[in-house]
Computed example of a mutant assay.
Amino acid sequence: MSMPTPPGDQNPVGQAPTGQDPWGPRPAGPAPSYWPPYPIPVPQPRNGMGITALVLGLTGVVLGLTVLLFWLSWLPALLAVVFGFVGLSYARRGLATNKAMALAGVVLGGVGLLISAGVGVFFVVVAKEVADDGRAEAARVKAEAAAEEEKEKAEEKARHLSFGQSYTFENGLKVTVAKPQPFDPREPVFGHAEGNKAVEVTVTVVNTGTERLSVESGLPSVNDANGASTELVIDGSGRQKVLTGYVLPGKEAVGKYAFSLPSDAAGKAEVEFTPDAKRWANAYWSGPTS
């Protein structure tokens, strides 16, 4: 008695299809499905430090060569060196690909620092020289002013003389004022009050130069013992003579003048005289009148 064939799959597993050698190769079936491998993320190179170092290095060098901004160059140059070394460190560890750029930043940063230091030293030296020159000029001006003041004091002292002494002005006129002598006015008299003491002042001018010289202001002024100006006496004696005109080389001119001094201030007098009031300061002769 034969077994019936089960329903469903007519080719059970392990059995070759009808008409096929059970020991031969199996027929090709559908290709198995292919799944590609999951992509592994690749890290991006960290080149920012090298780029920054290069830019800062260039900035430091440019600022260092600028006269007005050199004092700012040290900061970007220093940062270029720091960032450059960080970039080189990244490149050595394979984290960056711009080693040359980082190295260039370090070099430029170093150059920028050297330029900044050099220009800074140069300006310090120049500033010191300018300051030294300024101090020297100030000292020279001060010394000249002191010398000029001493000269003026010496000249002022030299212009104060006693009666009978001589003073030579810069144009070569030597002036001597004699001690005032008593003067007896004759009528008519102008400028002499009753009770006053009249004195005669004699001024002698000698030309010590080689050219004729003029006496532009031949009238002296006289101050009494109290420092008050006295009045010029004019009388009818004709004894007074006014210095005026030219004095030839080697020649002298004599002027005679009378002044009225108050009786209470007649014991001493001071005479001021200059041959040219526009050019030469007065010289002074003083002393007792009796």
Results as ranks from 00 to 15, higher is better:
S2V: 05
S2I: 07
M3V: 06
P4M: 09
P6K: 13
Q10K: 08
Q10W: 11
Q10Y: 08
Q10D: 09
P12K: 09
V13T: 08
A16W: 02
D21E: 08
W23F: 12
W23H: 06
G24L: 02
G24C: 05
P25T: 08
A28W: 04
P32L: 13
P32N: 11
S33L: 14
W35Y: 13
P36K: 09
Y38T: 08
Y38I: 10
P41R: 06
P43D: 10
Q44G: 07
P45C: 09
P45D: 05
G48E: 02
M49K: 02
G50C: 06
I51L: 12
L58D: 00
L58W: 00
G64H: 04
T66E: 13
V67L: 12
L68M: 11
L69P: 02
S73R: 00
L75H: 05
P76G: 03
L79G: 00
A80I: 00
V82Y: 01
V82N: 01
G87Q: 02
G87I: 01
S89I: 07
A91Y: 02
R93D: 15
R93L: 12
A96H: 02
V106H: 01
V106T: 03
V106I: 05
V106G: 03
G110Y: 00
L113S: 00
L113G: 01
L114T: 09
L114D: 06
S116H: 10
S116N: 08
S116P: 05
G118R: 00
G118P: 01
G120H: 01
F122P: 01
F123T: 07
V125K: 01
A127H: 02
A127I: 00
A127S: 09
A127Q: 03
V130M: 04
D133H: 05
G134N: 04
A136E: 04
E137P: 01
E137R: 13
A138Q: 04
V141D: 03
K142Q: 10
A143G: 05
K151W: 06
H160L: 15
L161T: 12
Q165N: 10
S166M: 11
T168I: 12
T168W: 05
K174Q: 14
K174A: 15
T176R: 15
V177G: 05
A178D: 09
A178M: 12
K179Y: 10
D184N: 14
E187Q: 09
F190A: 14
F190Q: 12
G195Q: 08
K197T: 13
E200P: 04
V203T: 13
T210N: 13
V215T: 10
E216Q: 14
P220D: 02
S221M: 03
A225L: 04
N226Y: 06
A228W: 02
S229V: 03
T230A: 15
V242Q: 14
L243Y: 08
T244R: 14
K251R: 11
E252P: 07
K256Q: 11
A258E: 02
A258L: 13
F259Q: 04
L261Q: 04
L261T: 04
A265E: 04
P275A: 14
D276M: 11
D276C: 10
K278D: 15
R279I: 09
R279A: 11
R279Q: 12
A281Y: 10
Y284H: 15
S286I: 12
T289V: 10
S290N: 15
